[in-house]
Design a protein around this nucleic acid. Structure first.
Lengths: 227, 227
DNA sequence: CGTAAGATTGAATGGCCTCAAGGACAGTGG
DNA sequence: CCACTGTCCTTGAGGCCATTCAATCTTACG
């Protein structure tokens, strides 16, 4: 049914198996590699052989409905884990948006503590954090208006990967408008319109379509809150 | 800030500590009790001392936004676990809708495998199933119309707690319309209107406002699918 | 029987979507 | 260097679905 990509093959263009951490002696369950923008890490339905730790870059987790309607479940940033299985299979597609450095951990590390107790603990905490983050996302999806959604999204992204830019902070939103729309449960047109609305209000500035400068964080926070 | 309810005190009206499973000898980390409809199991922000296993009844997990807008994260049925912590605290409110029999497990059983390896594994699988179930819920919330949402909901509930009723299956939806609405990201009015719409189409019948008979499962399935 | 809470139904508004066109930008080849 | 092309983003106009506001009906229970 589904084609499971072979890691060794898939990362052919930039394979750099960096087994660097001195603390890890079990080579077989710790594989680092790079994956270029546009490549796919796994598909919904794939057998979950690994859980992946994002070291750099940006990944996107999506699910599609039969008719093509799509939901972006989450964006994975450095420090995040992706690929938590259920019944041994992946339940989302995972694509690379920005060239990523990824560490593959064997699934057994999650299910069997003895493989690597320290990693097992980290995976467990990551899974619990994931549950909590998804609950936040629920509030976003069904309790907030379009402008509240986008403002909240910009704040979270600015917080997680914003960088100083003059007296302000700017954030590179590498994903497409369509990704943001499907993440927030909106259309690209509404995302675009809301973005200009926030721009015209003076809360943000768009250096490019993807580089956003937060001019007035207070105003942005106000826009993110109900009322 | 938050008032943490004392279990021993809270279940005063029907406390029945049933330590029944022969396989479990560590009394301290296995406490069974009953909790009546309307009672609260824990609140958002409470320190997560326990994880709870639902043996019977119906629980509701909710989160509220500052201004009062509410989201029902999930309904917990027998066999479900509730109260997965993040950073050691609960991130939802948990209320009893139908008198419930509950088993409290110490949080340590989740974080420390050695406490009870068998339970640890079950908790882990439950957490992974939870992540997957929440992803389903995402699709529901942002990809489906009101009638698709309600039809999907009825199918899931009929599947999980439906009982034979003549030639059909009926299901007791003990929760209020407001709960269903906040679960699906709709208003009570829309839930009500959509319910009558499904009734008039012949897909379901309402014995009472809460007891639904699935007359035409094929039609209900069709209504749940996009297109 | 009376009251209150919940559920249903109706009418009108509005926020977001759909459909459609135009603009910005990068890559390509002449 | 500059059309050419494709992809993505923005903007506009109109329509629809779900909401809001409000009234009525039903149910539970003292």
């Amino acid at each position: 049914m589904y084609v499971t990509l072979d890691l060794a093959c898939d990362s052919s263009e930039a394979e750099t198996p960096e087994i660097t951490t001195a603390s890890n002696f079990r080579l077989a369950q710790h594989r680092s590699f790079r994956l270029a923008s546009g490549r796919r890490l796994f598909l919904e339905g794939d057998e979950a052989e690994n859980i992946y730790e994002v070291k750099s870059g940006l990944l996107r987790l999506t699910r599609v409905l039969e008719n093509g309607r799509r939901q972006v479940i989450s964006f994975a940033l450095p420090g995040d884990f992706v690929g938590f299985p259920d019944n041994g299979t992946h339940h989302t597609d995972c694509d690379v948006i920005v060239n990523a450095k990824i560490v593959a951990h064997r699934r057994a590390a999650l299910e069997n503590r003895s493989v690597d107790p320290e990693l097992h603990g980290r995976l467990l905490q990551a899974a619990l954090r994931e549950i909590s983050a998804m609950q936040d996302h629920f509030m976003m999806l069904s309790c907030k208006s379009a402008s509240e959604k986008l403002a909240s999204f910009l704040l979270v992204m600015a917080d997680r990967l914003g960088r100083p830019n003059g007296r302000h902070r700017s954030v590179e939103l590498a994903m497409r408008r369509a990704d943001i729309a499907d993440f927030l449960g909106l259309t690209i047109e509404t995302v675009s319109r809301t973005m200009t609305q926030l721009r015209k209000s003076g809360a943000i500035r768009l250096e490019t379509a993807h580089r956003i400068v937060v001019l007035d964080e207070v105003a942005l926070r106000a826009a993110a809150q109900p009322d």
